[in-house]
Design a protein around this nucleic acid. Sequence first.
DNA 1: CCTCCCGCTGAGAGCGCTCCCCGATCACCG
DNA 2: CGGTGATCGGGGAGCGCTCTCAGCGGGAGG
Lengths: 359, 359
Amino acid sequence: MTETASRPTLEAVAARAGVSRATVSRVVNGGEGVREPLVERVRRAVEELGYVPNQAARSLVTRRHDAVAVVIAEPETKVFADPFFALQLRGISKELTAHDSQLVLLLTEGREDYARVGRYLAGGHVDGALVFSLHLEDPLPGLIQGAGVPTVFGGRPGWADGTRGDTPTVYVDSDNRGGARDAVRHLVGLGRTRIGHITGPLDQTSAVDRLDGFRDVMVDADPRLIVEGDFTPAGGERAMRELLDRCPELDAVFAANDVSAAGALRVLRERGRRVPEDVAVVGFDDMLPVAEQSDPSLTTVRQDIEEMGRLMARLLLRGLERRGPGGDRDRDREHERGGVGGAPSSVVLPTTLVRRASA
Amino acid sequence: MTETASRPTLEAVAARAGVSRATVSRVVNGGEGVREPLVERVRRAVEELGYVPNQAARSLVTRRHDAVAVVIAEPETKVFADPFFALQLRGISKELTAHDSQLVLLLTEGREDYARVGRYLAGGHVDGALVFSLHLEDPLPGLIQGAGVPTVFGGRPGWADGTRGDTPTVYVDSDNRGGARDAVRHLVGLGRTRIGHITGPLDQTSAVDRLDGFRDVMVDADPRLIVEGDFTPAGGERAMRELLDRCPELDAVFAANDVSAAGALRVLRERGRRVPEDVAVVGFDDMLPVAEQSDPSLTTVRQDIEEMGRLMARLLLRGLERRGPGGDRDRDREHERGGVGGAPSSVVLPTTLVRRASA
DNA sequence: CCTCCCGCTGAGAGCGCTCCCCGATCACCG
DNA sequence: CGGTGATCGGGGAGCGCTCTCAGCGGGAGG
């Protein structure tokens, strides 16, 4: 009755504009099929009252939420704390904002949280999910796909070779393998022959793919030249020492990411090896604060992380549109980035080699 | 009335358990005032049907959303990309999760986004907001406080000396000034006398506070020994050069954060100054990947960033409870950090000096 | 000039849930 | 053993919105 204290409702706007609720609703939702003068009147009423639609009420009937969950399953704080997710989030945020969708962030703290996330997603609180889970044996992706929520993964999930059950898996990834190949070829082009590789943790697809890329070029690499790291500086140091011990005549290293490359750099300096003269080093990621500020600055493989995020969101939203309210319209297939119209399919973004001082 | 395809409703659960909707509702919301056998039966029905409450319907009537917005207004990607926000987010997330609240992330891309954020918050989509806006002249905090949403700020807002309008401003901050004092005192204790300071961008309260702390100890510091930086490595380098040029006999530097300290370190090495022998360096933040991995490792002032986030969330939720729907029930009045039963008030967390190799 | 049709507007029925309120129930006391 | 109070359960009224559907009016065709 009194619309003084609380926020104005559709009803109030309708009264003020001298039209019915339905008309106001139409105007608010795009104004299709309402004559101009009325539209104008309603707009003014909305303005004057400062009306904002009640999303809860809307969701209740439309079953849409204009919200997307972003699930980051990264037990190790360290990994989460690197700029990687921040950049992806930024990309995601931009895209979602452009589509008037909200970003609901779900961080998991170990596996005990998975049930909670699953429940939340299955509960239909969001229209879809963007999921980051980098580990091979992680049950989360499966669990989420089981929840029946449209999902796009960030990075290729461990099991994903296309299909899981009957739902095609959609993911966005960098061309880790191709990027690694470029890196190693660059080293080869520099005339290096004893090229070592510091891998990432091999329970992550990105690390595995980069290792595969390394092997693609170094087809018969001495297995002793491959040491497993863990994407951390300390791991990079350890691996570098190992590498140097095993093969003192090493003349190049490809580290699976920049921070381990930075660790390697430190060890090389400590052992009196000049970079790049004695040992050339290439990293991966082009994490600016690391790559640009290391000494010497790091030659590395750049991936456009923010773009990955943006693309994930775009893919998801597009999928949502397709299955949107009304009938399903299947089966058109396009193959450009992210598809156009058809069911979205996975996208692998290209990488580029950035040459700096270390190789 | 078929409850086959779509998600089960309260009604369905009630039917299955042989009770009324209201009873199921009561059980779902805590089970107060329902007899044990019934509770049990309802629980089982919920379980069997996989019932999940429809949050939209619930919000519609309760006007609560169990969701909190986190607003990060940081135009510069670089700043956002450092681990700072990630850690805060983690802390916030943990606390919110513990209270069954969702985290809605709002990243702003420049000021043109402010209106959107304001509208969103004023729209009553969330129960409260946690806001990060580090810049002095930023209109966002005012705008948000104007939206009438319960808010806790991360870091002291520029204008906050307690009150804005009639709403007390609540924020969580580190003891930047005290931490800076500790850092400088440490340098003094080392016998250093020509101590320079690389500030942060002085449009941020944290930078100003650290500068004030520096001045507290170096009461009559030569103004030439203070150079404005910008919290970036490049800024640190630039400032360090400036400092060295102005005052070659410098024997210590307090940098307002770790990454600028890292930049300073690089310049010192380049100029042939030994650290800490010739010049001692102290940073601020204790950003591990930076502080621990720099060469030499950085003596710095640690702030518990994750704890700040957790505290912000706790303060907000507590404030929400107080003004909660229905009668106020100021039950648990604990006098732990974050205030006692009353209106939450701002909290300033202590910092600690972490001694490493650089000073 | 009348009729048909099309396009715009308004009335009304819920979406799933909470919560108020009243009637039913049960323990217990007189 | 009946009355009384306290407590528990159920019915019903919306929360604010969308969407279907009918109705109404005006323009064009007969």
